[in-house]
Nucleic acid binder design. Sequence first.
DNA 1: TCAATCTTTTTTCTCGAGATTTTTAGATCG
DNA 2: CGATCTAAAAATCTCGAGAAAAAAGATTGA
Lengths: 242, 242
Amino acid sequence: MSEVALTQPPEAVEPRTLVEGAYQRLRRDIIEGVHPPGEKLRVEHLKDQYDVGAGTLREALLLLVTDALVVAQGQRGFRVAPISLQDFEDITRTRILLETEALRQSIALGGEDWEASVVAAFHRLSRAEQKLGDSEDYAQAASDDWEKRNRSFHDALISASPSRWIRHFQNILYQQSERYRRISLFRKPVPRDVHAEHLALFNATLARDTSRATAILTEHILRTLESVRHMPADFFSTRSKR
Amino acid sequence: MSEVALTQPPEAVEPRTLVEGAYQRLRRDIIEGVHPPGEKLRVEHLKDQYDVGAGTLREALLLLVTDALVVAQGQRGFRVAPISLQDFEDITRTRILLETEALRQSIALGGEDWEASVVAAFHRLSRAEQKLGDSEDYAQAASDDWEKRNRSFHDALISASPSRWIRHFQNILYQQSERYRRISLFRKPVPRDVHAEHLALFNATLARDTSRATAILTEHILRTLESVRHMPADFFSTRSKR
DNA sequence: TCAATCTTTTTTCTCGAGATTTTTAGATCG
DNA sequence: CGATCTAAAAATCTCGAGAAAAAAGATTGA
C-alpha cells in the first residue's frame, strides 16, 4: 500500500499490492451497500470472491478497521460496521465541527493557488450538476461522476488548512456519510436544489466571509441529516446475517 | 481482538489473540520510544522479538496503522510514524478542538453518575500527585501510575459526551501526545504545578461553568506544547535507520 | 417440551515456506 | 573519481495447511 500514513482521498493511489487492491474493492463494496451493515465477513468466502489468499484478505479487513467500516471481534471474525440514526447524527455533527474549522483555516491561510483550485473544482461540479439536471436520464455513470466531483469540491475548500489531522478525520467521516447516503437514498435523484447551496458556499468562501461560509456549510451538511431522518422507521433494524 | 470497533482506552481489554497481544506490546514500545520515530520495522526481526509468526506480526503492524503510530508503504514495509514540531502543534490544536467540545457536551448532558466518576477520578489523581510531590524519589512505577490516572481523569471529564466519534478521535490524539511527551520529556519530573491546573479544571467543571472549564482545559493542553517547543533544535531530526 | 450436555461442523487464527520486489554491493565504463 | 549497470542478498508479500476456538446440531434426561 503506497503511503498509508494518514487516510488519503480514496482511489487517489494505484494499488501496489494485492492487499491494497482487495482493500479498495472491499471498501467500495461496503460503502455502496453490497455488503450491508452488520453482515458477517467470512474470510473463507470472501477470499474466493476477491481472488486473494486467506491471509491477504485478513489484512485487507484489518485495514478497513482503520476506516471504521469493519469491526473485528477477537476470535469471532469480522463484521461490516453497523449503522444507526444515532450514529449518523454523531457523524454529521462531528463532521460539521471539523469541516467548518478546516474551512475557517483555509479562508484565513489560503493563497492564490488555493483559490484557483476551488474555482476549478466548483466549475467541474457545476458542469456535472448541469448534466444531471438537463437530461433526466439518470445514468449511473453521471451520478458517480457527480459524487466524485462533489467530494473534490469539498476537499478543495478545506485544502488550504494546514491541519493534516483534521483532514484525516474529515476523510473518515466523509466516507462514513457517503455510506449512509448510498444505502438510504438508494440511487434517488440528488435531492433539493443542491447547486444553489454550492454556489452560495462558493461565493462566501471566495469573498473570504468566514462566518457566512461556515454557516452555509453547516446547513449544507445538516440537510443530508434530514433526508436520512425521514427514512422508514424500521430502516436501521439489523439486517445482519445471524 | 475483542471489540476493536472504535479505539478503546489502551489496556482496557485483555488480549484474546496473539495479534492483539503483539499489537498492545508494540504500541506500548512505540509510545515509550523503544522504537524511535522513523525506525524501519522489519517483520523478520520483530517476529522473534515479540514471539509470533511473520503473518501475525504483520497483522499487528496493520492494526497500528489505525492509530497512526505506524505507516505502511506498499512493497517497502513498515515504519514508525515520524515526528515533527509541526505535527505536534497540529495534534495539540486538534485535540483542543475536540476535547473542549466533548467537555462542553459533558457539562451540558452529564448526570449524577458522571459527576461521581469525575470526583472519583480527580481524587485518585490527586493522591498520585501528592505521592509524586511528597517523596522526591522518582520511581518509575509512581510516574506510570500518575500517567494512567491523569488519562482516567481526562477521560472521565468527557465521558458524558454522547459522541463516540469525538471520543474515538480524542483517544488517538491523546495517544499521539503521549508519545511526544514520553520521548521529549524523557522521564523528567512532571513539570510546573499541574495539580493546581487540575483542581481549577475540576472546580469549573463541577460548577458547570462551561466557558471557564473549556478555557482552563485549553490552557492546560497548550502548556504541554510549550514544553516540547523548548526542546533542542535538532531534536526532531530524523534518527531513522537508513 | 424444554434445558443441558456432548458431538460434529464450521470458522478463525497461526505458522512457515515459496515467489516477487526492493535494496545492497560489486564491477564496468566514461 | 563518479555514474551506470549487473548480480547477490535481504526484505516483503502471498499462499495454503494445520491447530484452536466458536457455532451448529444431536442426544439425553427431567
